[in-house]
Write a protein that binds this DNA or RNA. Structure first.
Lengths: 236, 236
DNA sequence: GACAATGCTGGAACGCCGTTCCATGCTGGC
DNA sequence: GCCAGCATGGAACGGCGTTCCAGCATTGTC
């Protein structure tokens, strides 16, 4: 046995939880969810896998920390200079999350499956608070706060996730397939469905072509806001 | 080299795509998403990994096929004997998906991240059709079909996913932790948040305790239905 | 009836993953 | 100067998805 190889010099900047999480987010953004491996992370940080485990329990905690960091940044951009209407406030929070998921597609899976992760999780309250304050400002009576805020949160997470999945799906079709081509392909495929089994889907297939995702997303928010104001007899 | 070991007898029932997918769903249901491995699947089918690959391209296709099978069964239970109101029809489809996700928690991740997967996917049209027919029956004008159906679908997928994640999270706290205890823990944790950062979340913490998930889910559906009828000036 | 061609099977092997282990170096208190 | 103990990083382990391929069963051809 020839013993261990020579020791490298000690690093100047010590490892830290933050630097690891930050590198993890970069890796997730550039290489996708499957690109975040401890080996790639160790290489990027010029260290070994064992050193990372000194600061982080495992991959689950790493993903949770990365999610928390990105969501915290996304919901922090609220305080519009002139306060604006509560409706606009909700739209701002919603778009912040929508854009965050679009920018970091790996977020969708985390928010869909890991959001609560025990009572200690800080991501869920962060989102809930951001939306809830605007619901309260809307004039919804206290008894309806939970229902209205939950409904908005679920819609936002669902729509943002589907949108991210669509974007990923378009990219998977080919690196140079743009959005228009992808929507066209989906629309065409839907038009070719069995007329007996899918009459409705065939009928709306044309509306898929060329629609704007953010616009559709906001239209859905508008639908829920209309429902909230109608049910609580608020002035819109 | 001693050559391969003795050949086992040939199987009686031949492998088939359906039997593989069916075994995969059982494995997912009993052992969770991480329990579906080609080794476990091969053992359950009394075969080797290579034989499975003759029928299925890879794990992605296996998960897609399992998802398709379960969703198809979930949205197929529509035709209520007396036709009923379109609102009830939407609630029925929504609850069908909600319950399917609750029964198969692994569905949440699939629906959140893999739903469209190219124009060939059949899961998305299936869900879209199920909801959309009821939207049409509601009297929504054709221009609003796509927006209303999309909004409902996104809400349903988001809410069902969050609910499944909550259930999983409660189970992870301990095998004998029931729903009430879990909600209590979340509520207590939310009440202990910083009053300056989380005033709204603290205020609704008590409403978390003891709420019913299905009821909340339906309340959200009701909110969106109210919004649809209000925006299109329909008689509810 | 003999024999090649083909369809399907299942076990071994490959490369990569998350995680654990541990010899080693560095640093602050004495 | 010395020693505890924090921190490091590379090797090693078991398990994963996937690929490869030798061998049986069936079919088609003469």
């Amino acid at each position: 046995m020839a013993g261990r190889t020579r020791r490298p010099e000690r690093r100047q900047e010590p490892l830290s939880r933050e630097s690891i999480v930050s590198a993890a987010v970069e890796l997730l953004d550039t290489a996708g969810e499957s690109g975040l491996t401890f080996r790639a992370l160790a290489e990027r940080l010029a260290t070994g896998a064992g050193a990372i485990y000194w600061h982080i329990t495992g991959k689950a905690e790493l993903l949770a920390a990365a999610t928390d960091a990105v969501v915290a940044a996304a919901v922090a951009i609220e305080p519009t200079d002139p306060p604006g209407s509560p409706q606009d406030g909700i739209r701002a929070v919603a778009l912040g999350l929508f854009d965050a998921v679009e920018e970091h597609p790996w977020l969708a899976a985390q928010l869909a499956t890991q959001l609560p992760r025990g009572p200690e999780g800080t991501v869920a309250p962060r989102i809930f608070e951001g939306i809830g304050r605007q619901v309260r400002a809307l004039g919804v009576p206290e008894g309806g706060w939970f229902t209205a805020t939950s409904a908005l949160m679920h819609y936002i997470l669902g729509a943002a996730g589907q949108n991210a999945a669509n974007t990923a799906s378009a990219g998977a079709l080919g690196p140079d397939v743009d959005r228009t081509e992808f929507l066209d392909a989906v629309s065409t495929a839907w038009e070719r469905l069995d007329p007996d089994d899918y009459p409705f889907t065939r009928a709306v297939a044309d509306q898929v072509r060329g629609h704007d995702d953010r616009e559709q997303f906001l239209a859905g928010i508008g639908l829920i806001l209309a429902g909230i104001t109608a049910i609580h007899s608020l002035t819109p």
